[in-house]
Design a protein around this nucleic acid. Structure first.
Lengths: 245, 245
DNA sequence: CTCGAACTTGACTAAACGGTCATCTCCGAC
DNA sequence: GTCGGAGATGACCGTTTAGTCAAGTTCGAG
């Protein structure tokens, strides 16, 4: 009765488990004892907060931070304005939480792709393939290629809401660290000539992020499909490695 | 008297000559005979229009399309709101004109850098060096690295104002064509192994644009300084070419 | 000098914006 | 059963937004 049964979204990844109050709720919740003994259910029954974050990701990824209003987010999430400000202190707070939540859904995927149990260059190979497949999926669900969420937001918000800018930077660095580790391991294994893995990761990251950005602007998957072949170029390799182990 | 002597901007490039009513003025100007015999001075004495475009570039490049209001642009340009809508039909119109005007200032620079009178790979070498130097200049003038104007706007506006999205796409393609031509010439000259120059240009463009985007997000010039060395990787070359002619 | 068109101006609007708040409902703990 | 706090609600506020407009001013052409 109170809630009209309008829910029919839930488009992309599993968000549910990944959100453990990352964005820390509104001021009230902070000022008082939010770190209470947790005998009470830590994961609340209602999922309004999750729906808000889901809506924020969907809307600001498909358009932009600036083009999405709190009202639009609330409408999509089927949450009233007042409830919104119960969970988040401001729009900036929401977007930071959305960036966090989205990153938390990506992390386990990256952990698997970059598992140390695989040969380092194979990690990259699977990463390239994954990006291409994932953006194809996204295009199917959202109707167009969207590229990288945190980088899109980050490029838009370099200056204006400092908290958002900082969060986007942080995530961008965290992502780069996966590449860095793989490259270092590759050098140690002799699969890659010695050199500065940090610089190489920057270079590779620029290539991948550039491909994603171009794919977004032109709604073109072609570049990403080529990634498993061309991605190696940024490392000075002519093509994908052939060794197995 | 009528105009308080507040002008003291004029920060980056020469915009003056490059703006020949690219953005086509407001509806009134379109509906009536704007294509009149041009015996009257085509370039008007007042530079309000140019100041508006200059302000738009500065403000939306340093922050974003969505974060800049018409009021802010007018204030910076020292132009009243009414005058604004005399020259432009809408905010979108302004931004499209700004993208156009900015591109017009870049074009002669690119024409020189990619002059057919130089060996093709040397064109690229000079392009890489130019990007690095230019962004360093921009950082000096604007206080931070800004990356690529049309790509920043384009990534933000992929969806929302269709005219802006289309213009950004168009410019992005135009830029890529410079690379394409150079790569084709390089292959013809035997300086590069044969292959699809369109795909190679996409690849190289992704790398360069990615480096610029990363430089913007992290306010970091390092990646761009490395461009003259690492740019070649995206083409499968280990380093800058040594030949002269 | 006169005329018309380019240009300028500031006051104006309606809508949208982010954010607030008193009040109510629900539900587990005691 | 009752108590307290998390959650939910819709009316509300002041500001800012893009865009309008009637009434000017400026100025070159005839």
């Amino acid at each position: 009765m109170t809630r009209p049964p309008r829910g029919r979204e839930d488009e992309v990844g599993e968000l549910r488990g990944a959100m453990q109050r990352t964005g820390r709720a509104a001021e009230k919740a902070q000022l008082r004892g939010d770190e209470r003994s947790s005998t009470t259910a830590l994961v609340s029954r209602g999922d309004a907060r999750e729906r808000l974050i889901r809506a924020t990701i969907d809307l600001s990824w498909t358009s932009s931070y600036g083009a999405v209003s709190v009202d639009a987010i609330c409408e999509r999430a089927q949450v009233r304005k007042g409830s919104f400000y119960h969970f988040f202190a401001s729009k900036d707070d929401l977007v930071v939480a959305a960036l966090d939540a989205h990153w938390e859904t990506r992390r386990p995927v990256l952990d698997e792709l970059f598992s140390a149990s695989r040969p380092p260059l194979q990690r990259l190979a699977r990463y390239f393939a994954h990006i291409s497949e994932r953006q194809a999926e996204i295009r199917g669900q959202y109707g167009r290629v969207l590229g990288c969420f945190h980088n899109t937001i980050g490029s838009e918000c370099v200056q204006r809401p400092p908290a958002v800018a900082a969060k986007a930077q942080e995530i961008s660095l965290a992502l780069r660290r996966y590449l860095e580790t793989a490259l270092r391991d590759a050098q140690a294994a002799g699969a890659l000539p010695p050199g500065d893995p940090v610089a190489a990761a920057k270079s590779l990251s620029a290539f991948v992020q550039g491909a994603l950005a171009q794919a977004r602007v032109h709604d073109d998957l072609e570049l990403l499909r080529q990634l498993p072949r061309t991605g190696w170029l940024a490392l000075g390799l002519a093509g994908p490695p052939q060794q197995s182990t």
